[in-house]
Design a protein around this nucleic acid. Structure first.
Length: 637
RNA sequence: GCCGACGUAGCUCAGCUGGUAGAGCACUUCACUCGUAAUGAAGGGGUCCCCGGUUCGAGUCCGGGCGUCGGCUCCA
């Protein structure tokens, strides 16, 4: 039979030849290096027979797919080591993931495994690697596989096989063995455990069986594997670097914000952090104004009847905060929409008034479960850069497109390229299917007309309407939703909103919910990590640190600071009795973008010695030149 | 909320098998008045997260709570 190699040449092989045979036929070096084989676009074991006419490519450590293979191998080795050390453990699944792998286990009653056990586990894993155990694939009938895993008490494997039968009607399943360990597995795997050259267990965590919080919580062990020790070390180093940009660490070091036990999940903004907050708010306010939004401000506490009418009570009351006010039950707003609806409803509206766009930096409270809190990225006290647009059906697409454009404009300022998701109707929802059809296709139309790439997140919409979300990742690659544009036909109906049309009849407006930064808290968290605390001048809490060389230069230093302040710049004089080396060091650590050093020479010439954070000495400039230069750089975008 | 780990000075951390708590940085004072990433000396500073238990004695052991971290579930 013939197989086709990546360069288009044909390789003749005897019938029944395997991937390993193909590699050997090409060359002994390749045969040794081979980890798998790509057959018609699917990575397979080398040991499996090829078919005539197959497009094949031998996979070695140079191919990116090979990392998944050895990581999956390592997951099996981990499971083998776990069964060695903790007999009676039930195994579930252990796939490769981005940057590594995990395996989920149910340990025997009374056994808890923590990262303190990693050393022993890794040692046991190394034994399996050293033993050079071949990965042997065996296809067995479903009854035989079921019997085998039932005998071993591997209930999760039994459930997996039963589901494969129920959902895919399979009659056989594949098993992979390495040494005494056998796992239900689709493969592929490398020829043997010895191909695992560098691995490490990284963390342990709980994870629900099948991601279902109603079911058993298993113990998930995370690890990673690479082809060389150097690659592994480089990966660990990257993680280390990423941790240095963690906004929680930088927030503390730079004095931006803090958290306290007295109000979990709610940041306290320190003066430096508030500068960033205000700079961002000013930008946001100005841009909203220019785009036809009018700012409003609404209460945070409302009669619970409002939340019953909006539907939030039914769906979210467990995550809301309630109190009684003179025996009247009230709830803190978890969203601003019913508040903006009150303003809309206060007056009669004409089609001539639409679209009406209300914006508010709205403070909402959501009782996020304790385990989900995460610095500024997941808080209970949330300041949304919210807006609600009331418009006619005809205006919907233009308005949605304008929202997306606005969002991209803002993200561009920071060099962000958000990932887009279109989330469609959830199971628990309000409104008719016809409404949902209309809303979903309107959002899709807007995305299409912009030619934007997006992912569909089926069933993840808000309970009142579908949405387009803007996502960004943090320093270690976790994805967070920032902006959102949501189309809503339900709230206008629930609150009986109307406008008078040209036909002099009453019509319901369409409502668009829109937050672009998402929340100031989360957005600033992402900003801190994005810039690693080295903010552009317009956001920097202290834009210029004026550093007098000696006490006698203090007077001039304050003149310099005053000149900067007069130009609208944030300057501080470091008038401590310290060496200039020390003052520079501290200003560098505070990540002040500019340092203006003044001594005898500068005082005499009314000049400054300019130093840029992270770059060093920029030479001497006249005071006027320095002020102009900083002022020019301090405007946002 | 669930699983696991952790909680000691403002920060980063040490504190062995239970015996009256320590370092560096920061802070205060004094001296130094300095030219591009730490001047030196002295000093002050702790309900060892909280509550309860075991013990002659608990930072250390046990139970409960709170918080934080890593995941999972959730995220209007």
């Amino acid at each position: 039979m013939d197989v086709i190699l990546p360069d288009g040449t044909t390789l003749q092989l005897p019938d029944g030849a395997t991937g390993a045979d193909a590699a050997a036929a090409i060359g002994p070096g390749l045969a040794r290096a081979a980890l798998g084989i790509d057959v018609d676009g699917e990575v397979r074991d080398l040991a499996r027979p090829l078919h005539d006419g197959a497009q094949v490519a031998i996979i070695t450590s140079r191919d990116p797919q090979s990392l998944d293979v050895i990581r999956h191998d390592t997951a099996h080795v981990l499971a083998a080591a776990v069964l060695d050390l903790y007999p009676g453990t039930k195994i579930s699944i252990g796939p490769p993931i981005e940057d590594g792998f995990y395996y989920d286990f149910e340990f025997p009653e009374g056994v808890t495994v923590s990262d303190g056990d990693f050393e022993a586990l890794e040692a046991k894993m190394r034994e399996h690697v050293k033993a050079d155990e071949p990965f042997v694939r065996e296809d067995v009938s479903v009854p035989a596989a079921l019997e085998r895993f039932r005998d071993e008490g591997q209930d999760y494997k039994v459930e997996l096989i039963e589901d494969l039968v129920a959902n895919q009607g399979v009659e056989t399943v594949s098993l992979y063995s390495n040494g005494p360990f056998t796992d239900l597995c689709r493969g592929p795997h490398a020829p043997s455990t010895k191909r695992i050259k560098a691995f490490r267990l990284t963390s342990v965590a709980g994870a629900y069986w099948r991601g279902d919080s109603e079911r058993q919580m298993l113990t998930r062990i995370y690890g990673t594997a690479f082809h060389t020790k150097e690659d592994l070390a480089a990966h660990m180093e990257r993680l280390e670097q990423a941790r240095a940009r963690d906004h929680r660490k930088l927030g503390r070091e730079l004095g931006l914000f803090l958290f306290s036990d007295v109000s979990p999940g709610s940041p306290f903004w320190q003066p430096a952090g508030m500068v960033i907050w205000n700079a961002l708010t000013e930008l946001w306010r100005r841009e909203n104004r220019e785009r036809g939004y009018r700012e409003v401000r609404t209460p945070i506490l409302y009669d619970v009847d409002l939340w019953k009418q909006s539907g939030h009570w039914d769906k979210y009351r467990d995550n809301m905060y309630f109190t009684d006010v003179e025996e009247r039950p009230m709830g803190l707003k978890p969203m601003n929409c019913p508040a903006h609806i009150q303003i809309y409803k206060h007056d009669r509206r004409s089609y001539r008034d639409l679209p009406i766009r209300y914006s508010e930096a709205g403070l909402v409270h959501r009782h996020e479960p304790s385990g989900t809190l995460h610095g500024l990225l997941r808080v209970r006290h949330i300041t949304q850069d919210d807006a609600h647009i009331f418009c006619t059906q005809e205006q919907v697409e233009d308005e949605v497109v304008a929202c997306l454009d606005f969002g991209f404009f803002l993200y561009d300022l920071f060099g962000f390229t958000p990932r887009l998701e279109l989330s469609t109707r959830p199971e628990q929802r309000i409104g008719s299917d016809a409404m949902w059809d209309r809303a979903e296709s309107a959002l899709e139309g807007a995305l299409r007309s912009k030619g934007l790439e997006y992912e569909v997140n089926a069933g993840d919409g808000a309970f009142y309407g579908p949405k387009i979300d803007l996502h960004m990742t943090d320093s270690i690659g976790r994805s967070w939703q920032l902006g959102t544009v949501q189309l809503d036909y339900s709230m206008p109906e629930r609150f009986e909103l109307t406008y008078t049309g040209a036909d002099n009849a009453e019509h319901p407006p369409v409502m668009i919910h829109r937050a672009l930064l998402g929340s100031f808290e989360r957005f600033i968290g992402i900003l801190i990590e994005h810039y690693a605390g080295e903010f552009p001048l317009w956001l920097a809490p202290v834009q210029a640190a004026v550093l007098p060389l000696a006490d006698r230069h203090e007077g001039y230093a304050h003149e310099v600071a005053a000149a900067l302040a007069a130009a609208g710049l944030r300057a501080e004089v470091d008038d401590r009795t310290e060496s200039v080396g020390r003052k520079i060091r501290d200003a560098e650590l505070r990540k002040a973008p500019y340092m203006l050093i003044v001594g005898d020479r500068e005082a005499e010439q009314r000049a400054v010695a300019l130093r840029r954070h992270g770059e060093g000495d920029q030479g001497t400039l006249s005071l006027e030149e320095a002020v102009d230069r900083l002022k020019g750089e301090a405007a946002p975008a």
